[in-house]
């Protein structure tokens, strides 16, 4: 059972199937409730996590998500780091354009996830993989 007590509490989930995407979503929701994010912010971070987890699965060929509670000294928050060793993203600006998709999606997952969180960092290299870190702070 996850307790999320210490500031460094973190949990890692492998993402290799649709069920894992659901698990990431549930884990994020549990922590979002525990750090007392507002209902709107809970929904936003859960939705962002759902998008990024599915991209990790579909485009990254699987990977993992590390969900952790963070604290910047003034307020707590939640951070999720998605990592895969897939093909990487050749043109990041293009990938972050609303409506751009290479897989028949809406092309809103990546760009939308960025709008749903407070901090969004992406590190990608063609042939190496992609790591995306998102953070949502309590207000």
């Amino acid at each position: 059972m996850t307790t999320w007590d210490g500031a460094a509490a973190a949990e890692r989930v492998a993402i290799t199937s649709d069920q894992d995407v659901v698990r990431v979503r549930q884990l994020v929701r549990t922590l979002a409730v525990a750090v007392k994010l507002s209902l709107v912010d809970q929904t936003k971070i859960v939705t962002a996590a759902s998008e990024l987890a599915r991209n990790t699965l579909v485009y990254g060929g699987g990977g993992n998500a590390e969900v952790s509670r963070v604290d910047n000294g003034r307020k707590p928050g939640i951070r999720i780091v998605f990592a895969d060793e897939g093909p990487g993203i050749p043109d990041l600006d293009l990938a972050l354009t609303d409506g751009y998709t290479t897989g028949g999606g809406m092309g809103l997952g990546l760009s939308g996830a960025r709008r749903l969180v407070d901090e969004f960092e992406i590190d990608t290299e063609v042939g190496k993989g992609t790591t995306i870190s998102v953070t949502k702070w309590c207000r």
Partner: peptide, 12 residues
């Protein structure tokens, strides 16, 4: 409300 706001931010 929370779903409506998320949908808007997502751009759907």
């Amino acid at each position: 409300p929370q779903i409506a706001q998320t949908i808007v931010a997502l751009g759907i």
